[in-house]
Amino acid sequence: MLDALKAIIRTLYIIALMGFTLWYGYFLYPVIFGTTEVETEEDFASQEIEAFFGEGTTEEEKEFMKSLKQQQRISTTDLGYMVIEEQYVKGHFHHVGMKVETDDNSICTRCHGAVPHDKAKTIRAFLNMHAFYMACETCHVRPEDDEQEWEFRWYDKATGKVVANPPGLNTLDESMYGNYSAKISPGGIKQDGSFKFINGPKELAFVERYLKEEGRLDDTQKSKMKKVIHRNVNEDPLICDGCHTISDEPYLPFTLLGYPQRRLHELTSTEVVGMINKYQEFYIPNLLRGGGVDKDVETE
């Protein structure tokens, strides 16, 4: 009995070893005949482009492949006493000293990306700056008249969970200043007393599903769904002075969100508010006052 078992084990071992031998022969080929040249990223990308699209690649296609390659590229600067690892931004001169985290929990960025504001030329960079730590819903969606007032919380860009005080909010450390890894987003208290963002995991799952299966809709249905999905997007987004105001009740409850007095003062100081007023006067386009667009940008 034991001998039979031994013989079986032995046979299995031999078969496994034969497999290993075959694998080794397969493994050796590239080791022996492997290319001596290391392919550069560029070469690799261009090869892939050709494999993808054949000859006559358009600029759009090239840009797409390049983006695929360069996503999340990190550039490193070794100063000896410290090593700076930062987001690679093509053609950027100044050191940014940070990595731009992706927001995995926004339903909007799935299509609109992290840098969505483009229409209002004079203030688009400011608007994108706000999108860095405020969910789209904060300004672009407002409670219905019959709805109870919303509450605001920070959510972690990676996990989507509520975070009480994001690091960087209450710090004097320059390297952490404004480095929240979190966004402010609206929500409400459910009947069981727990807090729920207006767009949480359930809505995110819907967006995922929609994007996956959009191809099954016919063209008319697609247009319809586009309208339905964006139904609660407010045509009049919240504008600057909703929050940057000297009044006692800004739209966002800064204190509840954990802003220290110092930062609160910054946001509502005459410095910022004054500048915004100037902006309003000279630069704020009609876009932000009733759904229009910048005067030199054509309507979509």
């Binding site: 840009e63 931004v89 950027h92 940014v96 700056m129 730590y133 200043y177 404004g178």
Partner: peptide, 16 residues
Amino acid sequence: KYRGLSRIDEKGDFRL
């Protein structure tokens, strides 16, 4: 000093 101050420029490049 704000980290997200950025846009996509006319050439399609990300400007921070």
